[in-house]
Amino acid sequence: MKKLINSVESVLEESLNGFARAHSNIIQFNHQPNYVSRKNKSENKVALISGGGAGHEPLHTGLVGKGMLDAACPGQVFTSPTPDQMLMAAQAVENGAGVLFIVKNYAGDVMNFEIAAEMLDCPHETVLVNDDVSLPKDHSTGRRGVAGTLIVEKIVGAAAEAGADLATCKQLGDKVVNSTASMGVALTSCTVPALGQPTFDISDNEVEMGVGIHGERGREVMSLTTADELVQILAKAIDEDLKPAKEQCALLHINGFGATPLMELYLVYDSAAQFFEERGIKIVRSLVGNYTTSLDMAGCSITLTLMDDEMLQYWDAPVHTAALRWGI
C-alpha cells in the first residue's frame, strides 16, 4: 500500500481535520459523533442531511454549504455512519422546518439512517437514491445509490434554500431520483487503508463493468476495449432505462472514481454526449470531474438526469460548498 497517511487508524480523523481547516469559511466539523455542518446555521428552511462511508470525497462533506446540504455524516471508509451521528447532526441543524435525509440505497446506510430517523423527535422524510442501472429494477435489495446523489442534493438543496417545505422537498427529491440513471466501469480496484491491499484483482486487459462505489466487484468482467465502446455499454443501459423522449433536456454528469485523469473524463463526456445527442436528447447542462469517488479506483460513471424547467432553475441556483460553487 502506497498512501500519504500517518497511520491507518488516524486517516479519517486527520483528513476531516484538514477538510475543516481548509474550508473553515463554509463549514464546521463536530468530533465524536463526527459530522460536518454549515458554519452559519440556516433559518426556517428544511434541513438537508446526507452521509455515508468516507472514501467518496468530495461526496458528502464537500457538498455542505449554502444551496446544498446542511450537514453530512461521514462513516469509516466505505462503512455507513452510525445513528448517533445522524441524530446529533439533525438536532444541531434542524430549525423548525423539519429534516430531509438523503440516503444512498446501500443496506448499511439505509438501516443506520432508519434507526436515527426512528429516534428523531421532529418532522422528517427520507429520499432514497437508487440510480445505478447496472442492476435490474427488481433486484432483491433495490438498485444502489451512486453518482446521481449529488444531483439530488443540488436540486433539492436549492429548493430548500428557496423555501420549499418538507413535503415539497421530499417530492422533488423522489422526482430527481426517478429522472436519473447512472452506470460505472472500473479499470482498477482500490485500496482501503485498513485492508492494505486492493479489494479485488483485475488484470491489465480487463475492466469491471457495472461497479458500485465501494470498490466491490461489478456485474461482470470484460476485456478492456476503446473508450467509445465502454461508453456505448454504459450509455445504452442508461438510455434503455430512462427512455427519454426526443428533444428531452438533460444533464450529463461524468464522474471519475478518483484515479482517472480529467483528460480521460472529458473524452468520455464527448463520447457520451454524442451518443445521447444522436438519440435526440438535448444535453443542456454538464458536470465533469471526481465527485463520487472510490478512493484510488480508476474508472468513471455516466449519469444522465432528465431535466424540466423547475429542475434546471434549481440546478442553476447559487451554491457555495467546498466542491461546487457557482452563482455566488
Binding site: P33, G53, G75, Q76, T79, S80, P81, T82, P83, D84, Y106, A107, G108, M111, N112, E114, I115
Partner: peptide, 11 residues
C-alpha cells in the same frame, strides 16, 4: 450501534 457502522453495526 455507535461504534461499528455498516450494516452489521445496525443489525
Amino acid at each position: 450501534m455507535s461504534t461499528m457502522g455498516g450494516a452489521s453495526g445496525s443489525l
